[in-house]
Nucleic acid binder design. Sequence first.
DNA 1: GCCGCGCATTGATCCTTCGCAATGCGCAGG
DNA 2: CCTGCGCATTGCGAAGGATCAATGCGCGGC
Lengths: 262, 262
Amino acid sequence: MQETPREAAGSKSSANLRLLPGFDELPEPILKELQAIVVRRSFEAGQTVVEADAPSRFTCIVRTGILRMQKDLPDGRQHIVGILVEGDLFGRVFNGNMHFSIEAATDAEILAFPRAAFEALLLRSPELDRLLLLHLLSELDRARDWMIILANPKVRGRLAGLLLLLCTRLQTVDHLVTVSGRAVRVRIPLSRPDVAHLLGTRVESVSRALHALADDGLLDIVRPDLLEIRNLQALTEEAGEPDLADTASLLRLVKAMRKSAD
Amino acid sequence: MQETPREAAGSKSSANLRLLPGFDELPEPILKELQAIVVRRSFEAGQTVVEADAPSRFTCIVRTGILRMQKDLPDGRQHIVGILVEGDLFGRVFNGNMHFSIEAATDAEILAFPRAAFEALLLRSPELDRLLLLHLLSELDRARDWMIILANPKVRGRLAGLLLLLCTRLQTVDHLVTVSGRAVRVRIPLSRPDVAHLLGTRVESVSRALHALADDGLLDIVRPDLLEIRNLQALTEEAGEPDLADTASLLRLVKAMRKSAD
DNA sequence: GCCGCGCATTGATCCTTCGCAATGCGCAGG
DNA sequence: CCTGCGCATTGCGAAGGATCAATGCGCGGC
């Protein structure tokens, strides 16, 4: 949030916090106070949202778009340690700064709460506090899922895992995951280099692994950034981790959408 | 905590909670209440502390020993997603269960707080709540550090990263990290298969990578589980991530101990 | 003291992936 | 329309790691 956003603080009223996941259960007065301190900020794809190790002056929620958390290595390379989508929360509270930078992977809009005010609110509202706690817990779960994906020795397996994770992670984001017939269609909001960094490999290997999966009929490559997963089951086995991403919920999604299509 | 510990609940009074990191700042009455509900439990190396996905009935703190968090894969393999040392906190609060199991890597003693009572206390004590929050944040940082290590394409680099992480992580544990002359001596509380799982590779590769580092003079292998790191700097470069583990604090440790040895 | 077992290491071979170079494709600017 | 640029893909030789098998080592049981 240290970077100068293209659009300065937007209208404070237009952001309906109640629509954010979990926020509908906050008591009315707390919502009002949040509403009063929130600042809306826009970023273009590629812009830096937070500099690594910079004093973090805001706690933020992603309103639209996709952000990537990344660590810049001394040799110039960078490693992605996670992505943030609609409704995700980021920023420090109470201590320290973030050890990674955050960049906009797509055009994005952020709701920012000045840190001091947010912390004060945290102390007064157990509900908000618990919301944050639960968020951190699930973030931790996700980080561990990611670790398991990364520990897969084969690029193919890691890629399969990543695709599954993205599917479940992007479910809630409009137009990125859709079900067509008996297949799941996914728009990958990351470039090939991004994916390669994420998986600890190179673009070429990603390309090869992806096409290998396509050749084996597990998925179709509609466009470089648009995949159609034809065999979720096989992909899960490929990843070697069944409950990795919440595949169950994905399968439910598929069934539900297939049923409604009947 | 569902497993039957060899020794049943120990004496409640003998556990001095104030000695735990962070706990000395809790207000007296809260400490008293924690003291009242805590149960001490012992586990032998290899025993299961918590079953994955089992209803988690306790929130726990490691008192002595090392635990490993691991995910059991359907094909029988298992992946380690983290280790817990003295003072670390684990267990769910408010929702869900853990998606990984916890095993004792060494003989271990833990302090267990019944979940319901602990949660009630959390709601009444902002200090305890914040302690948990901060703990989760640093746990998240660690998970991300680990991700970066795992994303390293070369086994050698991942191993270097793991060693550094272990050094800083085990600093606080007696007799595991010591400084002798200009070298750091570290006892690895994990077996080779454990390390291999952790790094997403096999025992053979771990062995080869370790001996390669030894051949290059970065470290000495005193015993299979006892390493003497001779060149922290080079090891850090090998890992490709400078502030990965808190190497700075390690260097400070080295300097401090060297100075005191003069 | 001998044996068997678990663990770490070493060796040899095969497969995967890396790393570099070249090609193909879409797109914006001249 | 052509050109240059960015990105994805493909090909190929070389390096690294996986895999299987065999050897050493420490330790508890007999």
